[in-house]
Write a protein that binds this DNA or RNA. Structure first.
Lengths: 242, 242
DNA sequence: CGCTTGTTTGATTTGAATCAAACACGGTGG
DNA sequence: CCACCGTGTTTGATTCAAATCAAACAAGCG
């Protein structure tokens, strides 16, 4: 069940920056547990004030904010290697919830130890901050999409954004990757109604940009899709993983 | 011209967490310069790959993303005490620009020294990360506003959000604070057209929520406005300042 | 087999965008 | 001192993209 950090199959992927043996040792000691959460369950509840810090080891999740009258905004989707719960750990209370989209495996890092990481291994602390900055750019990008793009552009920008992230992680094979979202998720992420989301997706499919046969998406023309969305690549150097 | 960190009038405000003399010493040495930027000028250009890190000492600024065809999304507004340019410093290239909204004074922290901060003063590095997390919640909140709220709710949420930030900084006196934005800024921040922004603001004024006589805004009924916007307070503990 | 969850379709309404002008104002320069 | 800008705000008329309303449909499942 528990995966030892030295044998972590994730960190050897090309997307990630290699770590020193010393750093991995430290992480190994830091990691308190390796847990599973079923699809649909909250990893972090909104308002929770004792949320731990996690690394998403396997599966998909998303951050969201719920407003009083039931409306929900999905802030971003989380893929393997992403850090979960940094904000709540630092700020003492989660302003958002995090829900498992698929069954998920998480490496648990006790929040209480967070400050020690800064004292013990500056290099690692720096990486944590780097990851926070990276997540920020993701949300910046979404805000731009929701604020400025038309429905069709939004869907296109959203798909191409996920495609590129999945691609960087090596999850894309012959233009296709596993796609566990339903249309409600997409509409909640993009600020569109479910019906309009559906019709717009149908239109983009008809235009030949992509198709979604049984739980996987095939992006037939990534460049064309990006262009349609007026979405420009944000490519990162190999990223740290914690 | 140059303000010494020990005499910084900002850090003694109640909004900010006090720092130790040692930390302030360190900051004093870290601070390379104290510069002014005129209103309307870029503090960080989009795509710039050598942006420094700044603390906003006085004035207002905003982060924005420009998309190819001229549309612009304002990501968030920056008030005194806010950190500018952390993302670009860490990620090597700015995904966004930062523009001075008013004439601005900045404390300049050489980006190259950033890593040393982590090595030298973990406490300070932790604060930097804390501030990054806090800015994240601001953008999360905006994304929720733009994605889920109606035009009137957006304006209301936007105003009350600024009001609360200004209030925390002690900039509010008898429900009023300096308001250097024009309606174009507001529409670019909220994803609304200029015309509709204007009409919606007029409506909210007519409803008595606020008025904007010569460059200052008076929020007559903060609680009512927050309620109208379905916006719930996110209050932070005293925040660090760098 | 009926239930739930998710997708699809069509008809209708509406909020917000767009188009088009005025208007208000603080320069500023002849 | 006044005509002339430029920037920002305001107003009204019109159009349109997206929301809402209302069902049907498909598929997996206890």
């Amino acid at each position: 069940m528990r995966v030892r950090c030295h044998e972590c199959p994730l960190r050897t992927r090309p997307a990630f920056k290699p770590k020193t043996a010393q750093e991995i040792d430290y992480l190994e000691r830091l990691k308190r547990d390796h847990i599973r959460v079923p699809a649909g369950a909250d990893i972090i509840r909104p308002e929770q004030d004792d949320a731990e810090l996690y690394t998403l080891f396997a599966g998909w999740a998303f951050r969201y904010i719920q407003i009083s009258d039931g409306r929900r905004q999905i802030l971003n989707f989380l893929l393997p290697g992403d850090l979960i719960g940094l904000q709540p750990s630092l700020l003492d209370a989660a302003q958002h919830g995090v829900e498992a989209l698929t069954p998920v495996e998480l490496c648990v890092i006790p929040r209480a130890r967070m400050f020690h990481v800064f004292a013990d291994l500056p290099r690692l602390a720096y990486d944590v901050t780097w990851l926070a900055a990276r997540e920020q750019t993701l949300v910046d990008d979404s805000l731009t999409t929701v604020g400025q793009r038309s429905a069709a552009e939004r869907i296109a920008a959203f798909i191409i954004g996920l495609y590129r992230r999945a691609d960087a992680l090596g999850l894309v094979a012959s233009n296709s990757f596993l796609f566990p979202l339903n249309q409600t998720h997409i509409s909640d992420a993009l600020g569109l109604s479910l019906v309009h989301t559906n019709k717009t997706i149908a239109r983009l499919k008809r235009l030949g940009f992509f198709s979604i046969p049984n739980g996987a998406i095939v992006v037939h023309d990534p460049a064309g899709l990006a262009n349609f969305a007026h979405h420009h690549e944000t490519d990162f150097a190999p990223r740290p993983i914690v």
